[in-house]
Simulated scan of single mutants.
Amino acid sequence: MLCDITTVRRVRAVVPVLLAFAVATACQPAVQGGTGSTASVSPTGPSRHVFVIVLENTPYQLALAQPYISSLADRYAVASNYHDLGEPSLPNYLAMTSGSTWGISDNEFHPLPATGIGNQLTSAGLSWKAYMEGFTGDCFDSPYPYALKHNPFPYYGDVCPPNVVPMTDLVTDLNSNPPWMSWITPGLCNDGHDCGVRTADRWLSEVVPQITSSSAWKKDGVLFITWDESSAGDSRVPLLVVAPKMKGEITMRLDHYSLSATVSDLLHVPRLGQAKQATSLTRQLQAGRPS
């Protein structure tokens, strides 16, 4: 059952608690086999600062043809056999953050159970933030270039978490005490969706050095940069693994569930949904080599 954002706002305004719960129950998509939110045990080990940047609609070869993206692939590690989970955007973002697409095949608003990596980290007492370009304080009503479909966190529990903050907070946090997980979503121009991959490449050339010059990244951090979908019909997108000791090509087949598994492992929280069976990059990161 689909629920558009206008309906959800109306329900929230009339009876904030009871009807919002009813809408969440009615609109929850059927969970595909093996993609539920039942947790599995994650490998033990220290938490690391994790940074994730998700960009838009660019196939592997086109992304790697850009000067700054290419320089990152040469200097660090790139997964050359990494795949999206189909179109459109939203199911891919949900897969990265909860190990499931929830049977969703559109970009509409769907209230989902209060699960996902953000809720896990909150329950575990681990700090996290989602930095959103264009965000003005309301997950459901912030202006362009912000896009709700590129912010998966309010879908879980039908609430805008206080951890969702404007992109402008990122530099301040990097210079002080960044959270254990920093999820970074540029707006519809800088992510390449509306303005193309060259714009995204220039944006990365400004933001990535801010991350890699931070003490958190230098000490134990890892930055993942990927794209939600290929837009070329082949499902192949890059995953850049920017970590101090990682360099080379990662050739094993991976997908967005693999990213979910890796982030969960690094932050020492249980994997969710399809991520429980996914191939993780945890071993490669611990060893400091791509294979």
Rank of each mutant, 00 (worst) to 15 (best):
M1C: 12
D4R: 12
I5F: 02
L18Q: 13
A24S: 14
A24P: 08
T44K: 01
H49M: 05
V52E: 12
I53G: 09
E56R: 08
N57S: 15
Q61P: 01
D74W: 09
R75K: 15
Y82E: 06
S98D: 12
G99C: 04
S100E: 02
W102Y: 15
T115S: 13
T115Y: 12
G118M: 05
A124T: 09
W128P: 07
E133P: 11
G134L: 06
F140R: 14
D141M: 03
L148V: 05
K149L: 12
K149V: 08
P154W: 08
Y156M: 04
G157F: 02
N163L: 03
N163Y: 00
N163W: 00
L174M: 07
S176H: 09
N177W: 01
W183T: 09
L188W: 02
D191L: 02
G192R: 02
H193R: 05
C195G: 07
D201C: 06
W203Q: 07
L204C: 06
V207E: 12
W217H: 04
L223V: 08
L223K: 09
F224C: 09
T226I: 01
D234N: 15
S235H: 15
P238G: 10
L239V: 02
P244L: 00
E249D: 13
I250K: 06
T251M: 04
R253L: 10
L259H: 07
V263E: 03
Q274R: 14
K276P: 00
T279K: 11
S280H: 00
L285P: 03
G288A: 10
